[in-house]
Design a protein around this nucleic acid. Sequence first.
DNA 1: TATTTTTGTTCCATCGTTTGAACAAATATA
DNA 2: TATATTTGTTCAAACGATGGAACAAAAATA
Lengths: 340, 340
Amino acid sequence: MENKKKSTIKDIAAVLGLTPSAVSKALNNHPRISEKTKLAVKEMAVELDYQPNFLSSALRKGKSNLVGVIIPRVNSHFFSSVVENIEKMLNLNGYNIIMTQSNELYAKECQEIDTLLKIQVDGIIASMANETTNLEFYEKIKSRGTELVLFDRGEEELNVDYVGIDDYKSSHLVVDHLVSQNCKRIAHIAGFHHIRIYKERIRGYKDALEKWNLDIQDNWIIESNLRIEDGRQIMQQLLNAPERPDAVYVAGDIAALGALQVLLENNIKIPEEIALVGFSDEPFTSLTQPSISTINQHSDQIGKLAAEAFLNRMSHPKKKTVNRIILEPELIVRQSSKRI
Amino acid sequence: MENKKKSTIKDIAAVLGLTPSAVSKALNNHPRISEKTKLAVKEMAVELDYQPNFLSSALRKGKSNLVGVIIPRVNSHFFSSVVENIEKMLNLNGYNIIMTQSNELYAKECQEIDTLLKIQVDGIIASMANETTNLEFYEKIKSRGTELVLFDRGEEELNVDYVGIDDYKSSHLVVDHLVSQNCKRIAHIAGFHHIRIYKERIRGYKDALEKWNLDIQDNWIIESNLRIEDGRQIMQQLLNAPERPDAVYVAGDIAALGALQVLLENNIKIPEEIALVGFSDEPFTSLTQPSISTINQHSDQIGKLAAEAFLNRMSHPKKKTVNRIILEPELIVRQSSKRI
DNA sequence: TATTTTTGTTCCATCGTTTGAACAAATATA
DNA sequence: TATATTTGTTCAAACGATGGAACAAAAATA
């Protein structure tokens, strides 16, 4: 009932009266093998339900055709969409991916990196956890000779290929839009400034305010992990303050959802009293009541480009120049900020 | 700067004047190796930053210490929590996991199974996609001699270890509760009945209605994929019908969220006009306004038990008896159904 | 016909680790 | 002291696939 033992090239060779090496060459379309034998071998391979042994070929070739993908949370449309597109692209090129999540924890991220290196992936495509400031483990990837590509959350000092959007410009798009809607007191629920993308969003926000001659109030820039509870708590804090903002720009959609809940619970009119803009274009932003304005980060593009960057590295291993791809952000205006 | 070549047991052996095999045995705590040598080997291993070559040892041992986990969606608290607990348990026992998602698609699921088999995982722990009716690929896992454990969505005919909750009883809990809140016209937004767990929920729902002498209306049992749009659309459909239900029991929280949105958009008082109960205890159910009553499926327990089932199989490979673990569901009553 | 080239295959070492068997040295038992 | 047992290590053969070198046979060129 159960044909326990899997067949190997040896079995095929035995049946056909060939050597294993001839079979291997036939399967790999070696030019010196006759068409006749190739055909016979391939037919027999199907017949015996032969599955190449990944471990042995990877060991021999020193190449696993596996790529590790590390993302902070899998439970986010942006990240899962990026992964989906990485996978699509890599599958086309004979690679399989192994997806792991850090849950935004530095310790977990280190562990995942170790696991991936242990399994001997050919490369790692990653977006860093919020907690991560020590780049030691990423250096380790590089020093092991494993390819590394970063997307979204990546640090320049690592000096590796990177794909992301122009975060500085995103903030300008948001502020410009809010100003056009007659908002004058714009607060920013930010991510931690030790992460480059959030630092850039903060910088863009400040520069844009300055551009429009608006006050920059330090207590209107509040950094957090951007979880839903963070959004709720910080929004409450902003409402309790002596002077309320008339617009809130949140550096993540999940936190924006939390902020929205608090606004609704306090019967605040959106966008009339306070306008709200999120970041990432998570699907739920179009489903809330009111729907939330946000920034589209082109997750499909990012995934595809990150995969291509990896493939490029693999085909040109000597190339030293680092490639940084920065995409244009796109503002999506919805009910939560459309006053006019 | 980059110490390209990774060290092997050969390198350690060379430095210490031993053979590779002695080093291997020392690292694996073989009883016949002296403590002195073990110590020396282990120190040198650290010094040379030795990382065991996973590929070669897996090849030699015929065991990869890798477990594949297939879930329908990663973007769900239930599933990601199960995976987290599987991982925790397996890591403690020297296994690493590879997480993959089917996106509820049969084709994707088959592809993931093939990838996992190719990588030669020691076992697969899976919850089946909504689409899956053909069990051929799961049979393939078994016939390859790879261990298989199913959780939540699993079919009995596969005859493998299973961990899940008592879905039939869950429906009784929900209906009993709704009846206690004076609901008399209870509709059911269901999953597809070709999936065992949804079939059981439907069966439980019907039997419970019968128990309370309530009418079973066939047009009040509507099957779907239970996505957010499904919940929205079906709720709208129920509202448009000549006779409206006074309670809706949704077989999934995401769809329940969609239903809630539609109820709110139509200014229907919850739970007074229509009470709502979901399924799975996704975190957002406690955050919505009103919060949603739901069923706790004990995702942490399920993950732990599924991992243990796998570990058991590995340590007793000959055991033929199949283990089905059925946990007790727990009803969590929140605002959306608390009339009294 | 003698020689070179091409073609199709086999031979063999290799990737890094593991493991049973073999063996010498040290220790215990008679 | 002779023999049996234990201890610590080496030897050699795997695991399955790969690929360069070697080699014989067939075909092409002189």
